[in-house]
Nucleic acid binder design. Structure first.
Length: 433
DNA sequence: CCTCATGATTTACT
DNA sequence: AGTAAATCATGAGG
């Protein structure tokens, strides 16, 4: 105790020497120390410190009286300031390092996720972004609208709970902070509490509350994840495409059997025609290709069926095209329909348009394509109704489209497409019938 | 209930 | 990023 008081005394002396508290020191000393200024002050401060140090040893009444006396002491402001400074310095040296904590990566992750899911962030979102994304992934057809609204409703519920809880915590945090601040301000009249210390205390409170907030965010994220996984599970519940859609897809597939890889535009077009999404079209073609390749025999009948169908459609198209060729200048045939892809039902020559690796055909190529279409028709029409369903090569659709590796022929140089004597996609057979 | 068909997902590859 | 291949999970028909 004595050592401590001596130390404090020294510190007080040192600090007081060069500070604004000097103003206070200029006042006449309380106990009539009229001697040398420096010595008198030191003695004075020493007395006060001694009183402070021994205050706990005294009885309550006595201490109360002393406290009051100290409070009223004219040296009090100066001493208070010094003590604050000492406290500040020792305090800072102790926790200086942990004062500025970096942004918690986990909290950032949670924040990002909540933002992405539309739980936090602007009200308008309301998870619609996430729902829309999920909708796009799930197909976005009308069938899923019920599930989407359900998902959205649940997400909104989570969002509401999250926000009310967050608000509650924030309010509690603010109330508690102001309470503590008032308390500290009040105490600062009797204890050396600097504004910085109050600030630090507020920081501590905020950190405590933010940890609660993090828990809230965590559980909200969990809830969203559960909801999402359930929604994704629901997505798995598949529904067969409509007969019409399957027909359209099959028609395209079998008329492009040499290269059944629709371009992005073709996929979009098919998706529109079938009222499904592009990814569903991709899925369908992926499944179809692999299943066709695995068991060509099984698909033979189907292939022939669609070949006949396509041929009949193509007949109309060719007839129209030929007529068109006769009326138009041979140098610019059919230039009007360039780039568009139409399904056979529309009566257009979509097969030709769509050939050549999905590139839009050039006007000069149309002549050749028309020619090939005519050839195709000659073969196919002759064979209509006469196809066999054997597994061998004597069928309308032969597995010649697949190369030795089991893959489809190189799309960039499909001989069946470029050859003017063979229709696109080898729709016709090798005249085995 | 069983089986097959089929849309969707996952994984690995390029 | 697009695809093949394997697999999952459900729908439909018997």
């Amino acid at each position: 105790m004595d050592d401590q008081s001596r130390m404090l005394q020294t510190l007080a002396g040192v600090n007081l020497a060069g500070h604004s508290v000097q103003g206070g020191m200029a006042l006449p000393p309380p106990h009539g120390h009229d001697g040398a200024d420096g010595d008198g002050r030191k003695q004075d401060i020493g007395d006060i410190l001694h009183q402070i140090m021994t205050i706990t040893d005294q009885s309550l009444d006595e201490a109360q009286a002393k406290k009051h006396a100290l409070n009223c002491h004219r040296m009090k402001p100066a001493l208070f300031s010094v003590l604050c400074e000492i406290k500040e310095k020792t305090g800072l040296s102790i926790r200086g390092a942990q004062e500025e904590d970096p942004p918690d990566p986990q909290l950032m992750r949670l924040d990002n996720m909540l933002l992405a899911e539309g739980v936090s962030g602007p009200e308008k979102g309301g998870g619609s972004a996430a729902a829309a994304a999920a909708a796009a992934a799930s197909g976005g057809s009308a069938d899923n609208s019920i599930e989407h609204s359900d998902y959205r409703a649940k997400l909104t519920q989570i969002r509401q709970i999250y926000h009310t809880e967050l608000e509650k915590y924030e309010q509690a945090c603010n109330e508690f902070t102001t309470h503590v601040m008032n308390l500290l301000r009040e105490q600062s009249r009797t204890r050396p509490i600097s504004p910085k210390e109050i600030e630090r205390m507020v920081g501590i409170i905020h950190r405590k509350f933010s940890s609660i907030q993090m828990q809230l965010k965590q559980s909200t994220c969990e809830a969203v994840m559960i909801l999402r996984s359930r929604f994704l599970d629901a997505r798995r519940k598949r529904r067969n495409f409509s007969k019409q859609a399957t027909e359209i897809l099959n028609e395209y597939f079998y008329s492009h059997l040499s290269n059944p890889y629709p371009s992005e535009e073709a996929k979009e077009e098919l998706a529109k025609k079938c009222s499904i999404t592009v990814s569903q079209v991709s899925n369908w073609f992926g499944n179809k290709r692999i299943r066709y390749k695995k068991n060509i025999g099984k698909f033979q009948e189907e292939a022939n069926l669609y070949a006949a169908k396509t041929a009949v459609t193509a007949a109309h198209a060719v007839a129209a095209a030929v007529q068109n060729n006769q009326t138009n200048s041979p140098t610019t045939p059919n230039s009007g329909s360039s780039g568009s892809f139409n399904l056979p039902n529309s009566g257009d020559m979509y097969m030709n348009m769509q050939s050549l690796n999905g590139d839009s055909y050039q006007g000069s190529q149309v002549g050749a394509n028309v020619q090939s279409q005519v050839d195709t028709l000659r073969h196919v029409i002759n064979q209509t109704g006469g196809y066999n369903d054997g597994l061998g090569g004597n069928s309308l659709y032969s597995p010649h489209n697949l190369n030795a590796n089991g893959g489809w022929q190189d799309a960039t140089t499909p001989s069946s497409v470029t050859s003017p004597t063979e229709g696109p996609g080898s729709v016709h057979s090798d005249t085995s019938n």
